[in-house]
Amino acid sequence: MKRGAPGPAARPAPYADSPLYRSFVVRPALWWAQRAGADAVALAARFGLGPSAFEDRMSEMPLAAYRDLIDACAEAAREPFLGFRIATSLPRGYLGVFELSASSAPTAGEAAARFVKYLPLVNNGLLSARLDRRGGEVVLRQWIEGEPLAQGRHGNEFILTAMLRQSREFTGQHVVPRLVRLAHPRPPDVGEIERWFGAELCFDSGENALVVSEAVMALPQVAADGALLAVLDQHATRMLDERAQRPDDFLARVRRSVRENLTHSEALLPRVASLLSSSPRTLQRELTARGTSFRRVVDEVRAEAARAYAAEGELGVGEMAFLLGYADTPSFVRAFRRWTGQTVGDYRRDAAPAAPPR
């Protein structure tokens, strides 16, 4: 983002439709900008963040706003490799239990498996990850459904750099991947990170991935601790189980209240909280504990209703936008394409029953 470009107050639509994302990168990115002489407080406020962004290890914000914020921090810090720099300079333990469980695993493969398994605990299920094995190679993949740029350049470079750095530190070996895939377009200069990874970098991949040999997965880890790992696994598994077993009554009531009050979009959160005899802060906290957020619930309810309206074929696009609480029709049209990959008209035609044979 260029200096002087409008922030979310001037461009609400891209952020209003963007899913919430939680990241470890916000605080160090703001620190880099501040260290370079930028007004980091004003920069954070420009993207809807308050003082807690400088205190909390993780910050939550719309994914599109996150990408723009980290771009703005990189420009302010005059650091084109900001995500890479943050990942290579973070102190050990910054990623908390997530990092500790991986470092305590017996092998690099077991550490990677825990990254995949416990990722929902730190990101509310927005990020997806998987280990694929094929022909002597292992691919550790990470992506975001419906977001071909994933976390954006700096977020993508951060996560892959952090993963490889940890693998090297945890095993005591200079692990070199066979291939690195990144979701974002190729930037003008990749020399430094290409040398650090020691492998070919492929861009515009729609996902982030490290491709390594099976031999790497078998490497023992220098800080393996079976007793500690058992405790951490038990704790993390209990958290995952609690999330899966939470009763759905509360979430169902939130969804119902959202659905019935979508036209009050500007005051939807306080209105729904009041209807549920709660406060906005408590409602957000309860939803976070269930692995979601108010913004995400609203997006899901809107998507479900939009598909139904489009299939019924009775309402115009403007009427649908109004009923779903959008301030303007173009914002709804963009959201509908994100949900379905189609325009309203194309979706309506595909949903229409076939004409009976003559």
Rank of each mutant, 00 (worst) to 15 (best):
E200V: 08
L251C: 10
H184K: 05
A308N: 06
A306V: 04
A42D: 09
R3T: 01
R358T: 05
V176T: 15
G291S: 09
H264L: 12
L182D: 03
E260M: 11
I159R: 00
G109E: 00
R337Y: 09
P280F: 10
F98Y: 15
L30E: 01
D56M: 07
P220L: 10
A10T: 00
A267Y: 09
D39E: 13
G136V: 06
Q166S: 00
R178H: 10
L315I: 03
A327R: 04
F84L: 06
P185K: 00
A45F: 01
A40R: 01
V254L: 08
V180S: 00
R290C: 08
F170H: 04
E60K: 07
G316F: 08
W31E: 14
A29Q: 01
G191M: 05
Y21N: 11
G146F: 12
A5H: 03
P14V: 05
L201V: 03
P148D: 15
S18T: 01
E314N: 07
V231W: 03
Y347V: 01
D233H: 12
V41P: 01
R195L: 08
A308P: 02
L201F: 04
L210D: 06
I193S: 05
E242A: 12
S278I: 04
A113V: 03
Y94A: 14
A327W: 02
R243T: 10
F322H: 12
E242M: 08
R130L: 07
A352H: 04
G191T: 02
V333R: 15
D241C: 05
R255E: 15
L324K: 14
A72G: 02
T161L: 10
V25K: 02
